[in-house]
Lab assay of single mutants.
Amino acid sequence: RQGFVPAAYVKKLDSGTGKELVLALYDYQEKSPREVTMKKGDILTLLNSTNKDWWKVEVN
């Protein structure tokens, strides 16, 4: 499932696989259909980080 999360809630990881991955630093509950819920410690695939406030991710 793809959607947006606050950029301040995730940290980029060095995956070494060519995929950009991020680590969820905090729990986040989606507040609109365009967002996704994540739990602290989740590893997500980063799809787009051009917006400084909201990053598009895919929940694996």
Rank of each mutant, 00 (worst) to 15 (best):
R1C: 08
R1Q: 08
Q2N: 08
G3V: 04
G3E: 01
G3W: 04
V5W: 01
V5S: 00
V5C: 04
V5M: 01
V5R: 00
P6Y: 03
A8W: 10
Y9A: 13
K11T: 13
K11Y: 08
K12M: 10
L13Y: 08
L13D: 03
D14V: 13
D14W: 11
D14Y: 12
S15H: 11
G16N: 14
G16A: 14
T17C: 15
T17L: 14
K19S: 10
K19A: 11
K19R: 14
E20T: 14
E20D: 13
V22P: 01
L23S: 04
A24T: 04
A24W: 01
L25D: 01
L25S: 03
L25Y: 04
L25R: 04
Y26T: 09
Y26H: 12
D27N: 07
D27P: 06
D27Y: 04
D27R: 03
Y28K: 00
Q29A: 12
Q29H: 13
E30K: 13
E30P: 13
K31V: 08
K31D: 06
S32W: 07
S32G: 11
S32N: 12
P33R: 09
R34K: 12
R34P: 05
R34G: 14
R34W: 15
E35W: 03
E35Y: 06
E35S: 06
V36K: 02
T37K: 04
M38V: 10
K39M: 08
K40D: 02
G41V: 02
I43N: 03
I43V: 11
L44E: 01
L44R: 00
L46H: 01
L46A: 02
L46N: 01
L47I: 14
L47C: 06
N48F: 06
N48R: 06
N48Q: 09
N48H: 06
T50C: 11
T50I: 08
T50E: 15
T50P: 04
T50Q: 13
T50Y: 09
K52D: 10
K52C: 10
D53T: 15
W54E: 04
W54N: 02
W54R: 03
W54V: 02
W55L: 05
W55P: 01
K56M: 14
K56F: 15
K56E: 14
K56S: 06
K56H: 10
V57L: 03
V57A: 01
V57N: 00
E58G: 07
E58H: 05
E58T: 06
E58V: 07
V59N: 10
V59H: 14
N60S: 13
N60E: 10
